[in-house]
Nucleic acid binder design. Structure first.
Lengths: 230, 230
DNA sequence: CCTACCGATCGGTAGG
DNA sequence: CCTACCGATCGGTAGG
């Protein structure tokens, strides 16, 4: 910061500029998607001209992949910390739900970009990275629960840990507002209140215990074949 | 079809062309998203030039909204039919899961386009239409289950019908392949086999009964406050 | 890291 | 429903 010495300035700032670009790219790409964000927008957000980006990254995709790589590494660290915590499985799952980026930086959009906007090599790398950094730590929590007999066995109607992790992740997706009723022309109303803590508890509670009433277990709600029909 | 009379030809074909355009728009927009599909691609798929589209629709957004309106109307009809069927709640939910477009025509992408690519009036209209056509019929099934005492009461830890419908819908989202392991560079591997019927049963079974073992109900899996910690 | 600029493609219009 | 064309914007390059 204070070190503004002539000879070292360039070599220091190059790393700092790179981080600035990555930060701006993270904010814009996660908020609006790969295609909707132009390289000029990213450059503007950094106080640079657009061609300057190409000194730090080969092209737009290279910048996107570098940004996502860092994001996935950060997620990996946080999720591993939670998974390794031990103890209450439900509480760890709630911490996962709280930890995952949900509000603005749309995970669904991230998958869209990975699968539809990038080349095959980048897609493959990010798939693998997503699995190792996000899916695996969450699956480890479910494996833990299975080992302690807290979860249903996969061979008896339960879900295997990886499938369970995918189910949890899919439940984090925000869908359009349930309750805009007659409020009129509010611009970006997406699940307005729905008290964040209530949402966390709801997701994990349904994932673990389901919506069915306990006494209705072998009833017409049918978890097997489905014999009774209207 | 056989009626190729001079005077009526134009007035007949105008409706047919419109339907052709809507069909091509549906396929392309749902597969690749609003922004990734150009008006020229749509015109090409119909054997038209791009400016010809503007005879049938005011602009690109108008075409997209018209297409989604028809899609939501079709979903409404199908879901209402299932919801009204009566009888086994689990079986009706499985039929919903089977009925909803899941594989290619990404629902998550649809929400992205509605929320981020369209103007506020179009967004508002489609939000309302989605709620009435998709959310409401599914919520009606849950209301039915509540009335018959098959589901937990919302005031006692259960989810209200609309929230339950949103949870079901979010679980339909496909996430990147769980199991590409060391298969290498397969291009679009998204949940390769995972036997479609197995996926349907898994989603509804978890939504109704959860992942927890029945005997572990009041155990450390914690559905309330979470007293026991590691 | 800048200025200047490229070819391609976009949504949309003019005019018939 | 076509040809011809518009201004804007895109990702990326040249050259310093």
């Amino acid at each position: 910061m204070a070190r503004r010495q002539r000879g070292h300035q360039a070599v220091e700032d190059v790393g700092e500029t790179r981080r600035t670009i990555l930060r701006a790219a993270h904010e814009l790409f996660m908020a609006h998607g790969y295609r909707a964000v132009s390289t000029r927008q990213i450059a503007d957000a950094c106080g640079l001209t657009q061609p300057a980006l190409y000194h730090h990254f080969a092209d737009k995709q290279d910048l996107y992949v570098a940004m996502l790589r860092e994001e996935l590494d950060a997620l990996h660290a946080g999720l591993e910390r939670i998974a390794r915590r031990g103890g209450d499985v439900g509480e760890r799952l709630r911490q996962v739900v709280r930890y995952m980026p949900a509000e603005r930086q749309d995970m669904g959009q991230m998958f869209h970009d990975i699968d539809r906007e990038l080349g095959p090599e980048a897609r493959h790398e990010l798939h693998e990275s997503f699995h190792g950094s996000v899916v695996a730590p969450i699956a480890a929590i479910f494996t833990d629960g299975l080992r302690h007999g807290l979860l249903r066995d996969p061979r008896q109607g339960g879900a295997d840990p990886v499938a369970a992790a995918f189910l949890l992740l899919s439940m984090l997706r925000h869908l359009p507002a349930p309750d805009f009723g007659d409020a009129g022309q509010d611009p970006v109303s997406v699940a307005p209140s729905a008290s964040a803590t209530g949402r966390v508890d709801l997701i994990v509670d349904v994932l673990l215990h389901g919506l069915a009433a306990p006494e209705a277990r072998d009833d017409g709600t049918g978890s097997d074949g489905g014999a009774s029909s209207g």
